[in-house]
Amino acid sequence: MSSIIEMPELVLENIIGFLDFLAVYTLRRVCKDFRNFINEMKKSKLPDSKFKKIHVFLKSEEMIRLTFIWSFGSQIEIERYFEKEKPGFIDLISQGMCLKYFENNKNYSKKEDLEMDRILEILKFVLKSQKSILQDLTFTFNSSQDSITFHKMSNILKSLNQNFQTKRLRISGARELQFLTILSLIDSKILEGIRILPVNPLLDFAMNSEMNQVFGTEQWKNSKEIFFGFSATNQNVEHFRHFSTSNLHFESISMDVLNVLKEFYINSPNFELSHLTVKRLEDTESLSTAWGAPFEFQYSRFWFFRMKNSKILKIRHRHVVFSVPIWFTCIEAGNVPQGAIIQD
């Protein structure tokens, strides 16, 4: 009698071609031979994993968590479900699947190292199988950039030799290398929104991270939306202007820079919204000096400017002492309140 393992390569590929992602994923777990065979298979021969969202959470050298989600809607439930995990937890639920590996043993033995490699191998398999465009791809790096696991993971991502297709990308980290490594692997034609966040907001917010290489990537330049959790500065603000939607944080911002932004948005055909949070805004009176008498309403001051595309740029500044919000919004002329002046 013949064994399935002895089937010629083409026959096995033919058989696997009739299976869906979950069946192939299960088949990987059947035995070593199948795992090796499937690992070596070409992307084109594998069924689409069709995930909507993937989250890679590198908590430490000893812990990684992968979450793959097929459908949205019960995100919190899924997160809660995953909190009950045990070491080496691998489970499937209807909305998605989660793999978690963490090792409490401080003595890092070879055997445990292999376990981590196994989890990374699954990440590789899933990413190779992902053919439809992701809605959301998230990386959280709690560990430093010198992390061996981070290097292993980035080598695996690079070895796939593909540009990952996702509409939104979210990276929490602490060092430019982490952001740069991931960002440069994303398909810039598909990417719409980027969220760059400090992994520890309290400690890292003030850290004016060097991001010049990130700003230079094609992915950064082509994206339409940005949420930047680190502080932007008066010097690097030019790298944020092109986004049609942006959410930025500043330690402080000069009137000159605000003016430059205003002029840029007035002339931009695609501008939608920009939300700035400024930790300390000194000399708020200079806003009125530069933009004229404001329209005041509910602790806020408004200015309205006619844009090149005949829409209106609304600037709103709220009177607060700390974390001063300033909004630039593109609105229709009909939405300008009565009594407000539209400046040309």
């Binding site: 399935i4 058989i15 009739f18 299976l19 069946a23 299960t26 088949l27 059947v30």
Partner: peptide
């Protein structure tokens, strides 16, 4: 051959396809 194992667990597949 593929339909034999659709929706089965690794243990069941091992049994169905007689894989050690």
């Amino acid at each position: 051959v593929a339909m034999m194992v659709k929706g089965k667990s690794p243990e069941e597949i091992r049994e169905i396809w007689m894989i050690p």
